[in-house]
Amino acid sequence: MKAFQYVRANTAKSALEALAKDPSAQFIAGGTNLVDLMKRGVTAPDKLIDISRLPLNKIEKVANGVRIGAMSLNSQVADDKLILEKWPLLAQALNAGASAQLRNKATVGGNMLQRTRCGYFYDTEMPCNKRQPGTGCGAKEGYNRMHAIFGTSEHCIAVHPSDMCVALVALDAAVVVQGPKGERTIPFTEFHRLPGDRPEKDNTLGKDELIVAVTLPDSPYTQHAHYLKVRDRASYAFALVSVAAALELEGKTIKSARLAMGGVAHKPWRLQEVEKALVGKTVSEATFQQAAQQAMAGARAFEYNAFKLKLAPNTIVEALKMAAGLTA
């Protein structure tokens, strides 16, 4: 890889200052994705600002919820007592991602900012609008088995690879970011974006901003929540389709629901309309089938990923059944 400068920041402020001085610099936290991208020549920053030592790794109970520092490790969050008790869906999703070694290194903020695993993005000899705007999308008419079925554009059909983000979007998380002008909060549903005609832009984080925390509101989804990830091997594989399903039940009646999918779009795919339709219904296979059909409205497949049109609804039904306790 290209030689680069390395500086270490000790506070969020100094990190932002270092970035302001050198806009071509990039933050590095766990580096579990960035280092790969640098090795393959996908990205070649002149300077890395190491933010892994910033004091942003606390998981704190706050009024009406929890605040998870952006530097918290994936494994730390997954094992946290409070998270396990109040937001088990998040812990399940985290443990479904990557490998134990990677979860011990990857941070919450870094997980959100990981790039797509599209093969055309990784091979610098291939066309890819995300890597190099204007070169075209190699995947659209290429090998697109892992690719999106929702929200694609003619410029990009990549998916966001995170499991954690699927649970976070379902649980109404918000992203706290700090910039030169201070802090702002972005609802998780608005953090990642669809490719449109700017596929190089994965999210709405400003170039001069740093993620400092993720907050989760208190949730009733402690008993009936399930993260189901369907993948080609039992561990250490990206999702073909994943579903985060959470239900608030009164007897057999659904009081409220949360539902999101991974592996299907350029962003974690929250299904708010489906959630609304589930309210007041009785838990049953039929109810969930109906929800799954509704969820698939607008889906569009490509040559190698048509199976997702069937796998996605099947996985929704299965995840909802698991959440509701309808299957063993």
């Binding site: 490998s99 695993r117 093969g119 091997r233 561990s235 250490y236 990206f238």
Partner: peptide
């Protein structure tokens, strides 16, 4: 197109 060990799958312990 899948020339790394994340995308070319061999079995893991699980």
């Amino acid at each position: 197109i899948n020339n790394d060990l994340a995308n070319y799958h061999v079995p893991v312990n699980a």
